[in-house]
């Protein structure tokens, strides 16, 4: 077998094992309170019969291993069970049905932010590396350092304050529904997307700059410079091809970060996404929803990191020509 294929397959296998381990952690965290969950929901005054009935109704009285296998096989097929809230009567609300439209909204927001942020930060990072220690580099550096140190909701509220309340260019709340037209949707997510763009551009740009500067110290770059070719050619033809691996890692890392940052940003803008849903579910202790959201977030996070690893394996020329 080709060594690259072998490494990729190994990495894929490792990713699957990680996913499995994470799903077990997510599942078993619920079991940390054996029997205590019903007590918590029903209150201290609940009779043992009531607790027993409650557990039986939710299927919590079966062994954990059985429940795990059932949960994960259903989850893989997109069925996350029924939400605890509103299951008191005969009406059952399927978690997947609640999540699906919100997942689309979150994906829409994250994709908008990523489409703007990735090219912008690569461009800024390369420029900063090219003209390092110039005033351009210094300004960009201090701005990004400050942005990184700020909580997302601070950046978000500054933007709301200035762009939505004072200048009235955007709406302070990004309420959308299933039948919002595409362009209207785009306009309404502009502000949350801008917030997330600012946060991840700061991270990504700094990492790109560091990766390029790291490369510029390599002997073959010195060689290229000594040959007398232009600065931009050194960067584009000699440094950049070797920088793809670290840059891919940076992009995936930041897209994974987008997954987490989305929670706070959605709450700020009251955007009906999966992050806001998870926060609501945490407050009402709606376990199936919390678990479903946690699994989706964690899986996205792991898969993006996996993707970064695979890209860096594939683009690494040293692995393509093994000795």
């Amino acid at each position: 077998m080709h060594p690259v294929l072998k490494t990729v397959l190994q990495r894929l296998g490792l990713g699957m094992i990680t996913l499995f381990a994470v799903s077990i952690i997510i599942f078993s965290s619920l079991a940390l309170l054996p029997g205590g969950y019903a007590q918590n929901i029903l209150g201290q005054g609940a009779t043992p019969e009531l607790v027993k009935n409650f557990n039986h109704e939710l299927g919590l009285d079966r062994p954990a291993s059985v429940r795990y296998v059932e949960w994960i096989t259903n989850a893989v097929q997109g069925d996350f069970g029924n939400s605890y809230s509103g299951t008191t009567g005969t009406i059952k609300r399927s978690v997947s049905a609640i999540i699906a439209p919100r997942l689309y909204n979150t994906f829409f927001l994250a994709a908008t932010a990523a489409i703007v942020a990735v090219p912008l930060s690569l461009f800024l990072g390369i420029m900063a590396a090219l003209y390092r220690n110039s005033w351009f580099d210094r300004i960009i550096n201090s701005v990004t350092l400050t942005t990184i140190a700020m909580p997302e909701f601070f950046i978000a509220y500054i933007l709301v304050y200035v762009l939505a309340v004072k200048l009235r260019w955007f709406y302070p709340n990004s309420t959308v529904s299933a039948n919002t037209p595409f362009l209207e949707h785009l306009y309404r997510v502009a502000l949350p997307a801008l917030t997330m763009t600012l946060v991840i551009v700061a991270h990504m740009m700094r990492m790109t700059r560091a990766a390029i500067i790291n490369l510029l110290a390599a002997p073959y770059i010195e060689m290229a410079q000594l040959k007398g070719i232009s600065k931009s050619r050194v960067i584009l033809r000699h440094a950049l091809p070797n920088a793809w691996a670290p840059i891919a890692t940076v992009i995936a890392f930041n897209l994974a970060y987008l997954v987490v940052g989305v929670v706070v940003v959605e709450v700020v803008y009251v955007y009906p996404g999966i992050g806001q849903m998870m926060v609501d579910a945490v407050s009402s202790r709606d376990m199936p929803v919390v678990q479903a959201c946690a699994l989706i977030f964690a899986a996205t996070y792991i898969l993006l990191n996996l993707l970064a690893d695979i890209v860096s394996i594939i683009t690494n020329p040293r692995l393509l020509h093994p000795k």
């Binding site: 990680t18 309170l33 987490v260 945490v282 919390v290 996070y301």
Partner: peptide
Amino acid sequence: DAFLAIPVLIFALMMLSVIG
């Protein structure tokens, strides 16, 4: 390694909903 694969904020949210 398994714990590192879960974003902190997500995991903290989940745990807070479980143990209160």
